[in-house]
């Protein structure tokens, strides 16, 4: 497969929306998400439940129905290597998943088949995309070694339950990268892991990204993980992108009140003395059957202006910010913070 225009982005998402009809009204999970990803780029997506971070990737992978989202209404456009994915049939998407786009989810136990050995499952990922059985078996061992599993010959014959959580997640990564995809999508892949195991998996991913030259979308709720792995950060809330940009810009020149709220609520934040009150974000995440009409974060934002409650702010370049640093906000966060400090 070749891409004619080498300057075209690897992934281009335009106005993606996902709504789930329910008896209590449609859940408006994703409400117009647009972004692009370059070949080799690592995008970290931060958000909490209901932010749309996971649903929008399931939609572009065609996995909504398989993950409990049957009946979803998906609109907009997702072009991967120039080809439209939305509306493609399942065989076409299945051919793409695994081969061109690798996927790693949070819970390896529910993604792995308990009655097949780990070696068989990795080999299956390869043979289903055209590799011969003997070559696939050999390659499975190489992959186990690549993801840092010792004694791959022996471990390939083990079943998933014989692996620890961290080792199972490595197996999932081995399957995700088996066909050397151009894009790896990882949804909370280290959330269930212990912190030292998480650190090993993150090191492994940084290393593999370099070796394989693949792009990554790394979905997490952990600002520390995103700070360590992403080149570009995208903050999502209420099914929308509220801020996006180079990682240093988003962390050090924050322009959206929700991003700032997340950073300030962390125990290590500036001014958070030992056992002092943390600067928490008031209120609750929105009910996505009735999302707020304007900026989804407005009801929890002390800087919200009347316009924030009425009109959705567009995601636009920060005028005096780093190139590619985009924010969706009617308020000027820097000015608001300065005014607050002066008062």
């Amino acid at each position: 497969m070749t891409t004619k225009d080498t300057t075209a982005p690897l992934l281009e998402i335009r106005d993606l929306a996902v709504h789930f009809p329910t008896p209590g009204g449609a859940v408006r999970a994703v409400n117009g998400v647009s972004y692009t990803l370059r070949a080799g780029e690592t995008l970290g997506i931060v958000g909490e439940s209901g932010s749309g971070k996971s649903v929008h990737v399931l939609a572009l992978l065609g996995l909504l129905a398989a993950r409990g989202g049957a009946g979803a209404i998906v609109s907009g456009s997702v072009r991967f290597e120039g080809q439209e994915l939305i509306g493609r049939d399942e065989p076409a998407l299945r051919a793409l998943r695994g081969r061109r786009i690798g996927v790693v989810f949070q819970d390896p136990m529910s993604s792995l088949n308990p009655v097949l050995t780990v070696g068989e499952q990795i080999a299956e990922a390869l043979t289903s995309h055209g590799l011969g059985r003997a070559a696939a078996t050999r390659r499975a061992l190489e992959l186990l070694e690549l993801v840092g599993i010792r004694e791959p010959q022996r471990r390939a014959r083990d079943y998933p339950h014989q692996f620890s959580g961290g080792m199972r997640q490595r197996v999932m990564i081995a399957i995700g990268i088996a066909c050397e995809p151009k894009l790896l999508i990882a949804d909370e892949p280290t959330t269930a892991l212990d912190v030292t195991v998480q650190a090993q998996v993150l090191d492994l991913m940084r290393d593999l990204r370099k070796k394989l030259g693949m792009a990554m979308i790394w979905i997490t709720h952990d600002m520390g993980v995103v700070a360590g792995i992403a080149e570009t950060v995208q903050v999502m809330y209420g099914g929308r992108i509220l801020e996006r940009g180079p990682v240093r810009a988003v962390f050090h020149d924050t322009r959206n009140a929700y991003t700032l709220g997340l950073l300030q609520s962390l125990p290590g934040a500036a001014g958070a003395a030992h056992r002092s009150r943390l600067t928490s974000i008031p209120g609750q995440p929105p009910d996505m059957t009735r999302p707020p009409p304007g900026d989804p974060f407005a009801p929890r934002n002390r800087f919200a202006t009347p316009r924030c409650f009425e009109e959705v702010p567009p995601l636009a370049q920060v005028p005096d910010g780093a190139p590619g640093h985009l924010v969706a906000a009617w308020y000027d966060l820097r000015a608001a913070l300065a005014a607050e400090a002066a008062a």
Binding site: V195, D222, A227, R248, F251, L266, G268
Partner: peptide, 11 residues
Amino acid sequence: SAMPLPDPDLE
């Protein structure tokens, strides 16, 4: 030392 730090420079 394995604890992720929410700051890209510290990371």
